[in-house]
Amino acid sequence: MIRRGAFLAGAAAVLSGCNRYQTSLGGEAAESANFLRLFWTFMAVCTLMYVLLVGGMLIALWRSRKAREALVVENGRHHASAPILRPLLIGWAALILVGLSALAIASFVTDRSNAANASHPKLVVTVTANQWWWDVQYSLQGTTTALRTANELHLPVGVPAEVILESNDVIHSLWIPNLAGKQDLIPGRVNDLQLWPKKTGLYRGQCAEFCGLQHAHMALDVTVESKTDFARWLTAQKRPAFAPQGPVETAGYRYVTSRACASCHTVSGTQAGGTVGPDLTHFASRRSIAAGTRPMDRGNLTAWVADPQGLKPGTNMPKIPMRRDEVRAVVAYLERLK
């Protein structure tokens, strides 16, 4: 009981002091708010039951400290048990039944409410998991082509969105705790996840099903923004990639579009059309590199291009031997891809 109390106090202290961009206790969307309500309901009932049970035990041990009969069974003689125990047993059983029923009902009601959130999605996004990054496609109204990006999700606040979940290789699980619970991405199956964000903010999602070597580095940056900001972002994303400026960027542009990079990556508006790796068209507008492995900055980007295996050992992007100046050029060009 003391521990429970300490837990609550401790949890509150720890949580208020630090970043809240990846936590189940945020409640920034319809489903995660439901989660919080239900969670504290469960905690209340469970704490009560815990206190009763452990308290009961401590009292039992305390009261029988004073020696009574030596052996309750001795030489074949059984002493009757305390008469109060029988009604207590019945009462305890009833209490468990009531407690469980209440919790079960609360759980179903929440589940229904979550299901109802799903009914009118205004925005459909397809997320396809790969070892170890996320391919993201926005279906655009009125066109058959989709807008493709990677490792990030932009959502307008207050708009229910449906995320279609698929996988290209093994099982992954998409989890953005501030917005909703997780759903698995299973090869050969199509799942979906309903997100209905209620507060703008920057969040982080992460792969929650063990998917091999770099499962730990498979995150996703989530931006919940106002509808106008979202519209602006969408328009920007629809544009083809910016052209390189200056000789260094141009050298980088040539390298990326004509060498190995192009066989894996797409930079729309150029010859680079590979689909094995993340779309790089507006790469520099993202907040992190390689599925949340490192924050986006020049140092990290240089390290990544020069030796992806050093930054994220085992990643499916190979180390490509490059000269110093080539690396600098490629990084400069990539930074242009806002």
């Binding site: 039951m49 049970l53 009961g56 035990m57 009292i59 039992a60 041990l61 009261r63 029988s64 400290r65 020696a67 009574r68 009969e69 030596a70 309750v72 048990s81 305390a82 125990l85 207590l88 047993l89 305890w92 059983a93 468990i96 039944l97 469980l100």
Partner: peptide, 20 residues
Amino acid sequence: SIPTGLQLFCWIATMWDGRP
């Protein structure tokens, strides 16, 4: 939880009744 909860009760009741 029902059978487990009842089992726990029975042990505690035994402690209650006995001399630990």
